[in-house]
């Protein structure tokens, strides 16, 4: 998607539909979509500083086991429900080409302080079992790494 807020609604619907297909209940599907929405808002606002031409990739994988490993072969367009009716969870990877920041510097703010903004990371961490920010590495062409990668995992056992 491009870094434009008008695409958020469509991505929420997509994420929610995939989560439902993987066996999450309605409430969990809504919460996972919220976590993704918050992550995308952060990329749009802080990463690309509201420039509308930035690229954001959202990749979604079923999680097979408790270790949270996704199964590369199990693309979501494969007949997942024939052999794996309910996945162990969902892994969502969000990547961008925006300015890199220190992953350690991305943290939730103190909730005791009531002020607008700064809630996104807290919401992601409350909802998801794993939230990991890192710099994107070099691509296959050997080009120097650009942008950030956020990996979030939600296990069905934690619903």
């Amino acid at each position: 998607m491009f870094s434009q807020p008008r695409y958020l609604s469509g991505v929420r619907s997509l994420v929610s539909a995939v989560a439902q297909r993987l066996g999450f209940d309605e409430s969990a599907c809504g919460q996972i979509a919220l976590a993704v929405d918050e992550a995308l808002c952060n990329v749009i606002r802080h990463g690309y500083q509201r420039s509308p031409a930035g690229t954001i990739w959202v990749k979604i994988w079923p999680v097979d086991d408790e270790a949270g490993e996704h199964c590369e072969g199990a693309a979501l367009d494969a007949p997942l429900d024939q052999h794996r009716p309910r996945a162990g969870g969902i892994r969502i990877v969000i990547e961008d080409l925006a300015q890199q920041v220190d992953p350690e510097a991305i943290r939730s703010r103190d909730l005791e302080e009531v002020r607008p903004g700064g809630l996104g990371v807290h919401i992601m961490k409350e909802i998801m079992d794993e939230v990991r920010f890192e710099h994107r590495g070099p691509d296959e062409t050997g080009e120097r790494g650009r942008g950030m990668r956020l990996t979030m995992v939600k296990r069905r056992s934690s619903e």
């Binding site: 808002c41 903004g117 996104g120 919401i123």
Partner: peptide, 11 residues
């Protein structure tokens, strides 16, 4: 549906 930008607006 509301996300944190809506919450921030209400705060």
């Amino acid at each position: 549906y509301m996300d944190s930008s809506g919450v921030a607006t209400l705060v």
